[in-house]
Design a protein around this nucleic acid. Structure first.
Ligand code: MN
Ligand code: MN
Ligand code: ZN
Ligand code: ZN
Lengths: 131, 131
DNA sequence: GATCTTATTGATAATGATTCTCGCTTTTAC
DNA sequence: GTAAAAGCGAGAATCATTATCAATAAGATC
């Protein structure tokens, strides 16, 4: 078995820089983008911290259509995303009415432990106005 | 610019074999899985045809949590998927009540051209019964 | 403050899915 | 039949992500 997974998290300026960069941005950012921005932080470190922060629920992972994973410093609690497919702007949607929908369908088909995943893709006002 | 993209599609036994394999399976399959199954069809050919078939709307692409893309011969029309996270069984959900939800939220935030994407992940009856 | 333990870092190699190359084969129109 | 072009496939190339591992630094203990 590999080295046991530490439960304690130390404070490092690298992680602080990553969280800070995410907090200052409305868009979701990939590890590569963050590494370009914070050229003092190694690429592997960016990946590691993004993974852990997402694991700890401190940031959200967003899968882009091309397969890359981007991350965003969202507020707490279950929510969904409305994403501009042009500029990447992300709006958090905290009013989720999909639990009923999922539960009903799950029951009908005999599924248990169902969770839903949903996103809205569109063009934001700013991007639409300069087309 | 690269070679212009052909609009005409020729009939080949490779593509037929791929579609046939998908039609015979309730689960979604990756290119690798299909290549293992149909060892007479080259891997690049599997990828090429899956991409085109999805482009043409003849099959559905399903993104797995780990990032791989799997494909399934679904019936026509807009629908969502209820997927067993253990055995991969896929149930098509053709009763979609999410358009209203999406449109309403889009309007509220000034987004246009919004489309939704949603999936349900759970454990199917069969898998739940033998835990 | 010195010292020790070990989480963390980062340059680099490795992985793995997907895409590209390019010469050969097959489909299909004439 | 012939020929133009789509399709094929073995292998090389991409590219995002992960694994290595020696060096560093955070936090605990004295
Ligand atoms: Mn929800
Ligand atoms: Mn729908
Ligand atoms: Zn925008
Ligand atoms: Zn199942």
């Amino acid at each position: 078995m590999p080295t046991s997974n530490p439960t304690t998290r130390r404070k490092t300026e690298q992680r602080a820089a990553i969280v800070d960069a995410l907090r200052k941005n409305d868009r979701a950012m990939t590890a590569q983008e963050l590494h370009d921005l914070l050229d003092s932080v190694g690429l592997a470190t960016v990946y590691r911290n993004l993974g852990r922060l997402a694991e700890d629920g401190e940031i959200d992972a967003i899968r882009r259509p091309n397969g890359e994973t981007a991350y965003r410093a969202c507020t707490a609690g279950h929510h969904h995303h409305l994403i501009c497919r042009n500029c990447g702007l992300v709006v958090e949607l905290h009013d989720c009415s999909l639990d009923d929908w999922g539960r009903k369908i799950a029951d009908k088909h005999g599924f248990v432990g169902v969770e839903h995943q949903a996103e809205l893709l569109g063009t934001c006002e700013k991007c639409a106005n300069r087309s």
